[in-house]
Design a protein around this nucleic acid. Sequence first.
DNA 1: TTGGTCATGATCCTATTGGATATTTCATTT
DNA 2: AAATGAAATATCCAATAGGATCATGACCAA
Lengths: 256, 256
Amino acid sequence: MSTTFPEGARIARSVLSDETYGVIRDLVLEHRIAPGSRVNIDSLSAELGVSPTPVREALARLESDGLVVKVPLRGYSTTPLLTVREFVELTQFRVLIEQWTAAQASASISPETTAALRAELAAGRATTGAREAGPDAFRALTDHDARFHALIAKSAGNDLIAQSFERTHFHLHFLRLYLASHSTDADGDADHRRLNAVLEEYDRSGQVSRTIDNHAAIAEAIIVGDADGASQLMREHIEFSRVRFLPVVEMIASLG
Amino acid sequence: MSTTFPEGARIARSVLSDETYGVIRDLVLEHRIAPGSRVNIDSLSAELGVSPTPVREALARLESDGLVVKVPLRGYSTTPLLTVREFVELTQFRVLIEQWTAAQASASISPETTAALRAELAAGRATTGAREAGPDAFRALTDHDARFHALIAKSAGNDLIAQSFERTHFHLHFLRLYLASHSTDADGDADHRRLNAVLEEYDRSGQVSRTIDNHAAIAEAIIVGDADGASQLMREHIEFSRVRFLPVVEMIASLG
DNA sequence: TTGGTCATGATCCTATTGGATATTTCATTT
DNA sequence: AAATGAAATATCCAATAGGATCATGACCAA
């Protein structure tokens, strides 16, 4: 008997293959299944209380999403954590796309978009109320961050580009990295001590309030229709995120 | 050193679900299954001589590719042809991404990339040998076009962006549109007569040689490292394609 | 002893078959 | 003509048999 997953992971049977898809997706994204590890179809189906068939279909879709990889006749594995190179490439992609979405959103600003941006900013500020650091705070921050950037992407008026941007799941990849870094046992190992030092530096560097301030500035530029300003601020925002987070990624890569 | 065989040397075992994925994909792209029509799993599995299970898995992957859509408990349908709006959005996306890839490829030009570009140009010129118009010529042109643009995307040095670009399958969508327009019966209908007029104008407008000339100019700019020039030429190339093809898209949309 | 090869068993992916459930269609009734 | 119900159709899931891969360990040769 392997009660690996919590009871909440069980499925309310309605449209089983879709439900299964969502559950497995969350299991991967939330690190319940470790990055780079094998995914056993039989175990998973037994764990979720369904037959292998919907699990198979769910995994096929997850492969197209880039969350698992399939080796024929050998099964599925979750994709490994982002490498440093992939992290840099993802940041490049974000700069390219989001400079454009910010400018476009500015050019076609509407009262509805303005209201939505202000509401999301308020939600973001609410997360800073509790000033603690660590996984929970980081999760709340990335949730807000994901919603904020997705909102701008949708406001740019090009659904295709918005979809292409959202399907990178950049915030989920960052969350996976961060969770992985915090879940490493903090024993006396010199590597782990250095990682913890990097993490504490990251957590304490005022990242949360800094991010919210950046968002506020970007939103204001968009609302007043300052396309060039919004574009420039967006670029700086992403670059800042890259500079702050890169040491964490490098440490993780050197450990793994 | 272990002189292991390259990846391709691995024996291609019969993995039925992968095989059916490719077959169904071609069926949809080549219009053997009409756009917007239902896809019957039982009929398909009987047609292909396999059981419904691999067909189901293949369809799940195709949904992530955007070629079919699933309605729970009602089955799958092929996605309709591109709307005018989607065509415009796709062009916007291409301009945004490909200006960047062209510039980046110029900035990091290598002898290998130079050779590959020249080879692809030669292949493109070979397609213009037969000066006929119509579906076959258009197919040869889009095949070359897809390879040329994918080559530049890969040469930009960012795999993530290259993948994101290639997964739009823009050339396949264009091919579907073109094939759909040519497959409509040329009866006495006034709409069809107008469509045929638009198509003949398109086929006769020197699109083939014009495209190859554009490609040659872009390749030359990349090879000599002229990032700004390559970026600008790429933009004009895509805009030209948009202007020439848009009337066809509009006619199709007005008919469907 | 050391190194490599080969057989054997376990594990897991893969695919078919059959049945349960939802939807659609069509005939019947009001 | 509209509504209701029942048969037909198709999706959807489960159970199971069939194969491939990997791991373990024994055997043989150097």
